[in-house]
């Protein structure tokens, strides 16, 4: 067992999260993908903190949690307001913006 295993796991989770953002059309699911990516980064930070014997990695991870919490509030508020307008949370539904 080596610490690298944690890092590989984090890499996999990060990739899955990014794939979810790119593939899923439901904004809530896509947003959960972003959350997973942030958590993967946190796992990396915590692992490296242990590797370096330096706590700042953990502190950064802590800040990330705070930031993520604020982000979630904003994001979900936006999603809810869109839902109230359209009755859907899909990115595709009635997409008014041409791409």
């Amino acid at each position: 067992m080596s610490l690298v295993n944690y890092l590989v796991l984090a890499g996999i989770l990060f990739a899955i999260g990014s794939a979810a953002v790119l593939v899923r059309r439901n904004s809530i699911v896509a947003f959960m993908g972003v959350e997973l990516m942030l958590n993967a980064a946190n796992l990396t930070l915590v692992t490296f903190a242990r590797m370096h014997g330096d706590l700042s990695g953990q502190v950064i991870a802590f800040f990330v949690m705070v930031v993520a919490a604020a982000e979630v509030v904003i994001g979900l508020a936006i999603i809810v307001s869109i839902f109230r307008t359209r009755g859907s949370a899909s990115l595709d539904d009635a997409s008014l913006l041409k791409s």
């Binding site: 999260g17 942030l38 980064a41 990396t44 903190a49 590797m51 990330v64």
Partner: peptide, 13 residues
Amino acid sequence: SAFFLMGLALLYG
């Protein structure tokens, strides 16, 4: 910002 953060983590490593 998730990408930025992952980059930050790797640089920290």
